[in-house]
């Protein structure tokens, strides 16, 4: 084996070991690889034989496992770790929003509201522990909430502005203001709530139509909703199957959209109701397609791992 080949093989091996241990982003890996190359060059210039230079360079750079541990304290597969101040500020702003969700759920006693309350509380607790996947999902929730309020405000002027203020405040704290602060799986998680709203509208508005008992129509919307929830869980596990559930959710949302024209409401609805439904489901379907792609390219394994759960 020639010297150049030997060096390339050693560098590739080191990089692979580091990647397996640390789940670093491409640019972080390239940065360390660049350093390793410089070290090898430096050592060889002093007349050290190739085999020794490669071993010594790796020793000076550090054990991949130790580097991985150190990196994990700063970076996670989903993005940079949020500071305690920002995470806790966002948590505080979420409390009144959660209270609203819980009080509506108890008032109407519906299952979905109860599930949303439990998941919401869980996410806020996870954010308090600075888990980056929770930050990404909650950023998506507050971001969608802000846009939704801004779009609907002209139609419902009486809407309480305090929600908009809370949502915008949360977005300000959770937003990745720096380039590269959120990684691809983080962005995918931020889009999951948009999918959820699309699917939520598809099921929710079926209830006020005469087709609510139609099994096929109902199953399409329900499938979109369950596939969306599975996608969120799958991306947190860094599993490739999350791309498939997102793709199925996307297909179901498109089917719902196609059948939207034939839905007849039980009671006369304002004109904007159908318009909203089209808008939300369309945006949800587009988000699902993007999530499917992001989940596919950024998955760690086919079935996922619980290792990223505490990141």
């Amino acid at each position: 084996m020639s010297d150049e080949h030997e060096i390339e093989a050693a560098i590739t091996a080191y990089r692979a070991q580091l990647q397996a241990e640390a789940e670093l982003g491409r640019s972080d890996l390239a940065e360390i690889e660049d350093h390793l190359r410089e070290l090898v060059t430096e050592l060889r210039e002093t007349g050290v034989p190739v085999a020794v230079a490669v071993t010594e360079a790796a020793r000076r750079l550090g054990e991949p496992a130790a580097l991985a541990r150190e990196h994990a304290r700063v970076r996670t597969p989903f993005g940079a770790k949020l500071s305690r101040a920002r995470a806790w500020s966002a948590c505080i702003l979420f409390v009144p929003l959660l209270y609203t969700v819980v009080s509506i759920a108890t008032q109407y006693g519906d299952l979905r509201g109860a599930a949303e309350s439990v998941i919401g509380a869980g996410l806020i607790i996870a954010l308090a522990f600075r888990l980056t996947w929770a930050r990404a999902i909650l950023l998506g929730i507050a971001g969608f909430g802000s846009v939704w309020m801004l779009v609907t405000l002209p139609l419902a002027p009486g809407a309480p502005l305090v929600y908009l203020v809370l949502d915008l405040g949360i977005v300000a704290f959770l937003m990745p203001w720096r380039r590269g602060e959120l990684a691809a799986p983080g962005w995918a998680l931020a889009l999951v709530y948009t999918m959820y709203c699309g699917a939520g509208w598809a099921t929710g508005q079926l209830a006020i139509t005469t087709q609510s008992d139609d099994f096929g129509t109902y199953m399409t919307a329900a499938l979109a909703l369950t596939m969306t929830l599975s996608t969120g869980a799958g991306i947190v596990l860094r599993a490739r199957w999350a791309a498939i559930t997102a793709a199925v959710a996307c297909a179901m949302l498109v089917t719902c959209l196609a059948s939207l024209g034939s839905l007849t409401y039980r009671f006369a609805q304002p004109d904007w109701v159908r318009g909203y439904a089209i808008g939300v489901q369309l945006v949800g379907a587009v988000a699902a397609a993007v999530v499917a792609w992001l989940a596919w390219v950024s998955a760690r394994t086919n079935f996922g791992t619980v290792r990223s759960l505490l990141r």
Binding site: D28, R60, G62, A66, L67, E70, H71, V74, R75, A80
Partner: peptide
Amino acid sequence: SEGMLYPVLHRMEDQA
């Protein structure tokens, strides 16, 4: 330990 510089740099980047 040279590799340890990078987490330091990234943390400083996060702190702007």
